[in-house]
Design a protein around this nucleic acid. Structure first.
Lengths: 233, 233
DNA sequence: CGGCATCCGGGAAGATACTG
DNA sequence: CAGTATCTTCCCGGATGCCG
């Protein structure tokens, strides 16, 4: 019984190969399975627990998530770690090579943002929206920022600071931030990408700003989505 | 009967959604199905016929290719065209937005090239190897080139010229090229990425060079693969 | 032959229930 | 909370055959 299971997991990984020397084909064998890239995305800003990944990927089932994490671990993209007491919880963390997959997530996301079928009203996870800021960051327009912006989504909090070539995003305390957004990731997406007025969102009770309101508005102004396909440039 | 079919095809596309506003998730709905990105890749250097796509994707079955092309067409990435007589053949061509997906193919390929599990001895298609040159092109090292390099793989031929920021690859006649590689794509891959000596490949009868041998060697010297994961930098 | 529909077997994905 | 077990559904892959 036990032996049977070991034998099975031994030959894990995609049974269906592409038989193609092209790097792209090999990449698809590594992270081309359903949900795999989204699991990677959820770990992109730091280690997470099984349940938190599951909660942030609406629709994934526990067994599929287990399979993906196993596969990503075998392929050298993810490692399992046990947090020291008193936390004493198991988390999944990307390897260095796993973190290097961020450009894949970004390139795909930036391209897909032009899709006419894209529906930005769907729910979005905290990690997703923070990553999207890194993706859509425009260094030219960000010159004027020069501030640290905080984000609090429930228990999760992040700080973003504009660096020379990129937007730096770290998980952690928002205490030192000039302005902090507090609320739901989806509402923040509406403010940044849908240009929904902040006071409207505050009135709806889904997003508020603490601290320097002007800094928060300057942050929002940095971002713009690429024009939809078929729309006038 | 007919109505039934129309109703089915009407709601084509991925029945399994991700329900996620993230652009990456939407991108996976558009081109995340098995084989989809490789079909895109095969069309990246120009229109192709059904049979040629199938021949260059070893292992894909006709019905799956049909499904992928239908899906890509519905999503606005591919259009079907009929060539004028005397060719009079149907071809599949990328839309402008479809061509814009090239960075996705490149980013994924560049990342996966670092994989310890990557096997570069597998067969590779003509389109794949030409695209890989664009992907791995290093503008700094290419400064010294200043030549047009031709490629003939059976009936397919290409010309590559080094431009300021990128390597330009076009399908077409190799008549004006300074040097032309003639043979099999896989052998060319060995020469460029495996640094297999050209005379060895010529002796094996899989690849030869016409024209300026020095220019061909300079072309090969442009490219290098990124270091494998875990290997010394 | 190119393009596509159909049928079938196997396997992956999805939903639910269950265990430590 | 972190998975495992089980069952169903559906997609993938292969074969065959139809039609222009």
């Amino acid at each position: 019984m036990k032996l049977q299971k070991i034998t099975e997991s031994r030959q894990n990984g995609p049974r269906r190969r592409y038989d193609d020397a092209c790097g792209t084909a090999h990449g698809l064998e590594l992270i081309g399975e359903r949900w795999a890239l989204l699991v990677l995305r959820e770990l992109m800003l730091g280690p997470k627990r099984f349940g938190d990944i599951k909660a942030d990927l609406p629709g994934i089932s526990a067994n599929v998530l287990t399979q993906r994490l196993e596969g990503l671990e075998e392929n050298g993209l993810v490692v399992r770690k046990r947090l020291p007491p008193p936390a004493n919880a198991q988390v999944y963390e990307l390897t260095e090579w796993g973190y290097e997959a961020e450009p894949i997530v970004q390139t795909l996301g930036r391209w897909a943002a032009r899709s006419p079928a894209h529906d930005p009203t769907l729910p979005i996870s905290a990690t997703s929206i923070m990553l999207s800021f890194r993706t859509m960051y425009n260094a030219e327009r960000a010159r004027a920022l020069g501030a640290a912006i905080g984000f609090r989504f429930g228990a999760d909090s992040f700080v973003a600071t504009a660096e020379i070539g990129e937007l730096k995003v770290t998980r952690g305390d928002t205490a030192g931030a000039d302005a902090t957004f507090v609320g739901e990731p989806t509402a923040l997406g509406g403010a940044v990408y849908g240009k929904v007025p902040l006071d409207e969102l505050a009135a709806a009770g889904v997003l508020k700003v603490e601290g320097d309101l002007k800094a928060a508005e300057r942050f929002i102004a940095i971002f713009e989505l690429p024009p939809k396909v078929g729309a006038p440039a």
